[in-house]
Design a protein around this nucleic acid. Structure first.
Ligand SMILES: [Zn+2]
Ligand SMILES: [Zn+2]
Ligand SMILES: [Zn+2]
Ligand SMILES: [Zn+2]
Lengths: 144, 144
DNA sequence: TTCCTCCATGATATAACATAACATTCGCGC
DNA sequence: GCGCGAATGTTATGTTATATCATGGAGGAA
């Protein structure tokens, strides 16, 4: 965990990014759990640590972390989870347990994979899968 | 479209479900577009048609439709889209165009597939993919 | 009929999630 | 010192979703 933070520091230094105290703190918060955390819960934890606690504080830090590959948003939960693939344009698959709320990130290599494969490798039983791709449809591609 | 509604009526009748006026109207609204629609936009359209327009009106109807396979929620957009696989426990994959906002539903047979396969079959260029599975993790399965 | 239960809807309020907009601060190169 | 850009401070508001209790109406049992 402390090692992860250190890696994040290094990555930022090497890439002209600024892991400011509040951003670092949010990253620590996210890495401390294996469950997803909502922005307002993060805000509470920030306040406890003496940071300001207006919503933009959390959302700005989260934007930074998500942008730079230190965190992901879990759309189904409106929550966030730590990651450690900085800068990587990866397409992860998340396994969200309905019983213990744990969220595990599995790598979906090169966007070519099957959910069931990934899940079974992780020992996860899928009850419902959300797959949403963003991009360009046929006709919009043709126009370009 | 009118045919879809008719099928929905039939399915409901055969399964003891009640496609009430407001539920039917919401389904019509969803089926009229090939883009996802937010609950509050639906609410506006309901009001224009003389229905009540407090949030629970839309959310209740949407819950019914989603529960019974007449609609899906698009998590990335906090919006809803019509479907016509009533009762089917299917695992669809959605292709969301960032340019024209169209959303197309592709069938992901038996939860065993690859996003890139589905996308290319549909002529869709994937820029980002969200894959979130809900279910039971290894340890929670073991306890059961 | 009367009463009961279930389902759907009505109605009010509030919770939870997220962003807009503008002001301030601070470090850095000129 | 000055101008600039990045980050943060601050206030306000927008957007999405749910909790809760009240009302109504169809259908069955006694
Ligand atoms: Zn990741
Ligand atoms: Zn679990
Ligand atoms: Zn569907
Ligand atoms: Zn398009």
């Amino acid at each position: 965990m402390e090692k992860n933070i250190q890696e994040a520091e290094n990555y930022c230094q090497q890439n002209g990014l600024n892991l400011t105290p509040v951003r670092r703190k949010v990253l620590e918060i996210l890495l401390e759990k294996n469950t997803a955390i909502g922005a307002y819960e993060i805000l509470d934890l920030l306040r406890e640590s003496g940071f300001k606690n207006q919503p933009p504080v959390a959302y700005r830090a989260l934007d930074f972390l998500v942008q730079n590959g230190f965190a992901h948003k879990i759309e189904q939960l409106n929550s966030f989870i730590g990651c450690m693939h900085p800068g990587k344009d990866h397409s992860p698959a998340f396994m969200i347990c309905r019983n213990c709320d744990s969220v595990s990130e599995e790598e979906a290599l090169t966007r070519n994979f099957s959910v069931s494969q990934i899940a079974s490798k992780a020992g996860f039983t899928v009850e419902k899968a959300v797959i949403e791709a963003r991009g360009l449809c046929q006709s919009c591609s043709d126009l370009a």
